[in-house]
Amino acid sequence: PEEVRRLVEELYRKGVSPEQVKKILKKQGIDEREIEKVLRRIG
Rank of each mutant, 00 (worst) to 15 (best):
K26I: 15
V8W: 02
I30N: 02
K22N: 05
E36L: 02
Q28H: 08
E34T: 13
D31A: 07
L39K: 02
R13G: 11
P1G: 10
I42M: 13
V16R: 07
E3C: 04
G43D: 15
D31S: 11
R13Y: 14
R40K: 13
I42D: 05
R40F: 03
E10W: 06
Q20I: 09
R40E: 15
L39M: 12
V21L: 10
L25E: 00
K37Y: 03
E32W: 04
S17R: 10
R33T: 12
E3P: 07
I24S: 04
K27M: 14
E36I: 03
V4Y: 03
D31P: 11
V38G: 05
E9Q: 06
E19A: 10
K27T: 12
R5I: 11
K27L: 13
I24K: 06
K37C: 04
Y12D: 05
E10Q: 08
R40I: 14
K22F: 07
V8Q: 00
E19W: 03
E9D: 08
I35V: 09
P1C: 04
Q28D: 07
Q20A: 11
R13N: 14
V16I: 13
E36V: 02
G43K: 08
Q28L: 12
E19R: 08
P18S: 10
K22S: 06
R13M: 12
R41Q: 15
L39C: 06
I30K: 02
K27S: 14
E36T: 03
E10G: 05
I42N: 04
V21R: 00
E32P: 09
R40M: 08
R5M: 12
E10A: 10
K37R: 10
I30T: 02
I35S: 01
K23L: 08
E9K: 06
K14A: 14
K27H: 12
L11P: 00
K14D: 11
R40S: 14
R33I: 10
E2D: 14
K22E: 07
L39T: 09
V38R: 02
R40G: 15
E34R: 03
E34D: 11
L25P: 00
E34S: 07
V21H: 00
Q20S: 11
K22A: 08
V21D: 00
G15P: 01
E3S: 11
D31L: 05
K23W: 05
Y12R: 11
K26E: 09
V4T: 08
K22M: 11
K27A: 14
E34C: 06
G43S: 14
K22G: 05
I30W: 12
G29R: 02
L11F: 06
G43P: 06
R5S: 10
I42P: 06
R40W: 03
E2K: 10
E2S: 11
E9G: 03
R6C: 04
V38K: 01
E2H: 09
R33S: 12
I24V: 09
P1H: 13
S17M: 09
E2W: 05
I24Q: 08
L39Q: 12
V8E: 00
V4M: 09
R6N: 07
Q20P: 00
E34H: 05
V16F: 13
I30C: 04
E34M: 10
G15W: 01
K23R: 13
K23M: 07
L11V: 01
P18I: 12
R13Q: 13
R41K: 15
I42W: 04
V38I: 14
V38P: 00
R13S: 13
L39N: 03
E36C: 04
E9V: 06
E19K: 10
P1D: 13
I24P: 00
R5E: 10
L7F: 06
L25A: 03
R33L: 12
V38Y: 04
I24H: 05
V4S: 02
I42S: 05
E9T: 06
R33G: 12
V4H: 02
E3G: 09
L39V: 12
V21N: 00
R13A: 14
E36S: 02
Q20L: 12
E36G: 01
E32T: 06
P18G: 09
L7A: 07
S17E: 11
R33K: 13
R41T: 15
I30P: 00
K14V: 08
K23I: 15
G15K: 05
E19S: 11
V4A: 04
P18D: 11
E9M: 08
K22L: 13
R40T: 13
V8H: 00
V21A: 08
R33P: 04
G15C: 03
G29L: 04
V4W: 07
E36W: 01
E19Q: 10
E10T: 06
L25M: 05
L11T: 01
Y12H: 12
K26C: 03
P1N: 14
P18H: 08
V16Y: 14
E2T: 09
E32M: 06
K22P: 02
P18R: 14
E10D: 13
R6K: 12
L39P: 02
L25F: 01
K26T: 14
I30F: 15
Y12E: 05
G29M: 04
I30L: 12
V16E: 08
S17W: 05
V4N: 02
K26W: 04
E19G: 09
K23H: 12
G43R: 09
P1R: 09
I35T: 03
G43Y: 01
R41G: 15
I30S: 01
K26D: 04
R13P: 01
E34Q: 08
L11Y: 07
Q28V: 12
V21T: 08
P18V: 13
K26G: 13
K14M: 12
K37Q: 09
V38L: 10
P1Y: 14
K14G: 09
V38C: 04
V21G: 01
L25D: 00
E10S: 07
R13E: 13
K37P: 06
G15N: 06
S17I: 07
E9R: 04
E10I: 07
I30D: 00
E34L: 13
R6E: 07
I30E: 01
E9I: 08
R5F: 11
I24A: 06
E34N: 04
Q28K: 12
K14I: 08
